[in-house]
């Protein structure tokens, strides 16, 4: 009986270890690097995104509808440009990562 229980205890611990391994295998090293890059780019773009949010607040307080409309249009263009730059930066950083990977 002791041997049986010992075997089951070892098997139980081993299955728990396998569950941890399954969770680890779900994300590859490259995925982790991508997440890190996205975090870094987000930090770099933090000031710009904050400025855009502040501008939105200022536009909301404008009372003249024509000026508000024009402001909103230009704000929307700025937002689109922001996302373009943001995605381009991530792509650039990922390319750099690939260069590093090939090099080493």
């Amino acid at each position: 009986m002791i041997l049986e229980l010992l075997y089951l205890a070892v098997l139980f611990i081993f299955i728990l270890y396998l569950i941890i391994q399954v969770f680890k295998c779900k994300v590859t090293t490259l995925d982790k690097a991508k997440i890190e890059i996205e975090k870094r780019v987000q930090d770099e773009f933090q000031v710009r995104s904050h400025q855009l949010l502040m501008k939105r607040g200022e536009l909301e307080s404008i009372k003249d509808p024509d000026s508000k409309y024009d402001g909103m249009i230009s704000w929307r263009e700025e937002i689109e440009q922001y996302y373009k730059d943001y995605n381009a930066q991530i792509e650039y950083e990922l390319e750099q990562l690939n260069v590093v990977r090939i090099k080493f």
């Binding site: 075997y7 089951l8 098997l11 081993f14 299955i15 396998l18 391994q21 399954v22």
Partner: peptide
């Protein structure tokens, strides 16, 4: 024991 072992082995095989 056999079923549990087979299950553990199949996870090892997948990984």
């Amino acid at each position: 024991g056999t079923w549990a072992t087979i299950d553990a082995l199949s996870i090892i095989l997948v990984l």
